[in-house]
Amino acid sequence: MAAARRAFARHAYADTTIAAIAAEAGVSPALVMKYYGTKEHLFTQVFTFDADATALFDAPLDRLARHMVLHLLAVQRSQTRDPILRIAFSRHHLELGGQARANFRTQVVDALAARLPGPDAPLRAEMAIGVLLGLGALYATVQADRLTRLDPDVVADLYVPLLEPLLRGDSPAPPAE
């Protein structure tokens, strides 16, 4: 799965092969096919976010902001997988990218919105996930030197005040349409 995530992050769906994924994983293409069946099914598994969202949101609401930041940082620092950031790569995949984005909306954004109290929960969930995506992009893509040198607790101390109003529902309401 890690090899498939890296492959689909670097290459368009049409340019990604089972043979290349298998080679990077150090297994045979037949083994990949045995477990995933088709390249499309493997792609679908790469762009499924249920387990990632479960881990990301695994804290009570009063500690959720800190947990989300620390979880994201731990995963980024371990470089084992990119739990939420792989949605950024879905634009490479014209054929199936729409499904990946729909999965992300349902499994991550909507799941967070369902936990949030108060008005405008879907909007606040989108904004909170946006903050996390920005932080993750700084770590994974930009590799912001000053930020990545900070202790995770210090980063959490800086990001929690951005996230908590969004999660609690005490952020200003958006203007009426």
Rank of each mutant, 00 (worst) to 15 (best):
A14R: 15
G134D: 03
T44A: 15
R115D: 03
A30H: 08
A4I: 13
Y36F: 15
L162M: 14
A59L: 05
V69F: 03
H11F: 11
T148L: 13
A4H: 09
H71Y: 13
H93D: 04
K39M: 10
L150T: 02
A53N: 04
L116R: 11
T38H: 14
N103G: 11
R101E: 07
D15C: 05
D157S: 09
L94G: 03
G134Q: 11
A114H: 12
P83D: 07
F8V: 12
A4R: 12
A3C: 05
L135D: 06
D62M: 00
L166V: 00
G169D: 00
V160A: 11
A3K: 07
A55T: 06
Y13F: 15
V46L: 04
Q107N: 04
P119A: 15
A100K: 04
P29G: 01
A125C: 02
A156V: 15
L135Q: 05
L133H: 02
A156I: 13
P161C: 08
M68A: 11
P165Q: 05
D58W: 07
V46G: 03
D153C: 10
H92K: 11
A51L: 07
A65F: 07
F8E: 05
F49Y: 14
R101T: 11
P175S: 15
I18L: 14
I21H: 09
R115N: 01
A140E: 04
Y139P: 02
E24L: 10
L72K: 01
P175Y: 12
D157V: 08
D153K: 12
G98I: 04
L166W: 01
T38N: 12
D58N: 13
Y36L: 02
E40T: 10
A140P: 01
A100P: 02
F57M: 08
H11T: 05
Q107I: 08
A12W: 03
G97Y: 09
A51T: 09
D58V: 13
Q107M: 03
Y36M: 08
A100H: 03
M127Y: 01
P161M: 04
A51F: 08
Q79M: 15
T16C: 07
T44S: 12
H41W: 09
L163G: 03
D157P: 08
A140D: 04
A12E: 10
D170A: 00
R124T: 00
A128W: 00
F49D: 06
L42E: 12
H41E: 12
E40H: 12
V154C: 10
S28N: 07
A113L: 02
H93Q: 09
L56T: 00
P175I: 11
A4L: 11
A4M: 14
L31F: 09
A59G: 08
A51K: 10
D52A: 12
Y13C: 03
R124K: 01
F47A: 06
T48G: 15
